[in-house]
Design a binder for these strands. Structure first.
Lengths: 249, 249
DNA sequence: CCCTCCAGTTGCTTAATAAGAAACTCTGAG
DNA sequence: CTCAGAGTTTCTTATTAAGCAACTGGAGGG
């Protein structure tokens, strides 16, 4: 029941998301369609601002019209709707940046964020995808996967973002075991220099891990001792969110 | 050259954005297509997480997959990335809705928004285009244009949105001179009844006007006196954002 | 200067796919 | 129980999307 041309248009969006930018010929090759077909599909997306062109040749990207949908999504999905107030109160309490992230294929995607009063980081992670292996949220989500899915991620490329990023599969396996035991995951300058983070799991109605709830801040403020304290706060908030999502312990 | 079925799928996304949620029958009515057509188009969007259903009956909404695309856009725009935190802190301080808008052809387009605690308006302007002549941001951007570009806009249609909209080119020229002198622009029920707004310019690295920073709220709260106070706050925040963008005064 | 390559677009043809209609299934309300 | 309304499925067909070939324009090289 898939409408093929619509599916192709979505495939174009996914391609632009992956590649950053592409031209008509490249898009046609990737889709396995004729250039004129690709041109028309892109034209349709462009007419609605979902795709835009930077320059005359080859540089189509996701368009600014997509921004309109971001607020709608975060206002509507339960995790964002229910979790955002919790994010905000926790950010105020901790003074750090608090995020909720969910699994999206082989990456984590942030669906909610609130910044605390001490937060210096300018980055808004909402809607941004982050690598599973290099973030505290990602490790929580990885640890919750069945072994087959987990191995699939570990078999992929574990990109180094800093000298601290865990890129050895064996090391990551050990870390994930520890996450399961500790009930929280940490990240010490593995994604960005100077950035520490800690995350715990949020359970959905059926008891499966629905999301990761995390707090992040500069290394100088997030010592290992403080991280453990924050993990406790996160766990309490996560339990409340789990309850709101329908989980009964 | 529009691919009709793709256009219809996009129309469905726009409808869900407008309405919040809708069922297959309502979508079919709005598009003027048969129910089975609407069902197939929605199915295709749903298969790719661009649409999701809450419950069994009637409650289709925008899906989380759209967030991925929105995230790609915000990650690319420095203004949105750097300006959003400032938006948020200013919205909290002022209690009003704060926006950042950039020039996009002959319209302003909002790239960031934060709502204050007093904000009653449900409208999310992010990603939306607004007319230059009828908004405070638009006037700031207009005033920053060279005379040739400015005259091109003034020679176009100046649509009346309310009885207060400035539609006479001469009157608008006078207003733009005033904007340049005052260092801020205002909007008194020119776009929507009951809506007042004030905007200041944000300078980019080279000193050119990169964006407009605005605050808006209901007429009963935004008196002319309060507008002048808010303009001062906006100017301070805009100076900070300009600095972040690389402008050295 | 001409030629080649590559970007994207346009016009035409046609067949494949999308669309419409009708029938179906399921659920909830009266 | 019936009926209305939700969404889905099957079938038919015509309309629309897709493919092909030609086109336009720009850049680079000889």
């Amino acid at each position: 029941m898939v409408v093929q041309s619509v599916d192709r248009a979505i495939e174009i969006l996914e391609l632009l998301l992956r590649e950053g930018e592409a031209g008509i010929t490249e898009i046609a090759d990737e889709l396995g369609v004729h250039k004129s077909t690709a041109s028309r599909l892109v034209y349709t997306l462009q007419a609605r601002d979902l795709v835009e062109q930077h320059g005359d040749r080859g540089r189509f990207t996701i368009g600014i019209g997509m921004l309109r949908f971001a607020g709608a999504v975060t206002g509507q999905i339960d995790l964002a709707r229910l979790g955002t107030p919790l994010c905000e109160s926790l950010a105020e309490k901790l003074g750090e940046t608090v995020n909720i992230a969910v699994l999206d294929g082989a990456v984590a995607i942030n669906v909610s964020q609130a910044r605390g009063t001490s937060a210096v980081a300018a980055q808004n992670w909402t809607g941004q995808r982050t690598p599973l292996h290099a973030t505290s949220s990602g490790k929580v989500l990885l640890a919750s996967m069945d072994e087959q899915d987990q191995e699939r991620v570990l078999a992929g490329e574990l990109t180094a973002y800093t000298p601290n990023t865990i890129v050895e599969p064996d090391e990551l396996r050990t870390v994930l075991k520890r996450v399961a035991e500790d009930g929280y995951a940490t990240c010490f300058e593995e994604l960005e220099p100077g950035l520490h983070a800690v995350a715990v799991e949020v359970l959905g109605a059926t008891g499966e891990v629905a999301a990761a709830f995390s707090a992040s801040g500069p290394a100088y403020r997030l010592s290992r001792k403080r991280i453990r304290q924050i993990a406790r706060e996160l766990r309490a908030a996560a339990a409340e969110l789990s309850g709101q999502l329908g989980y009964i312990n």
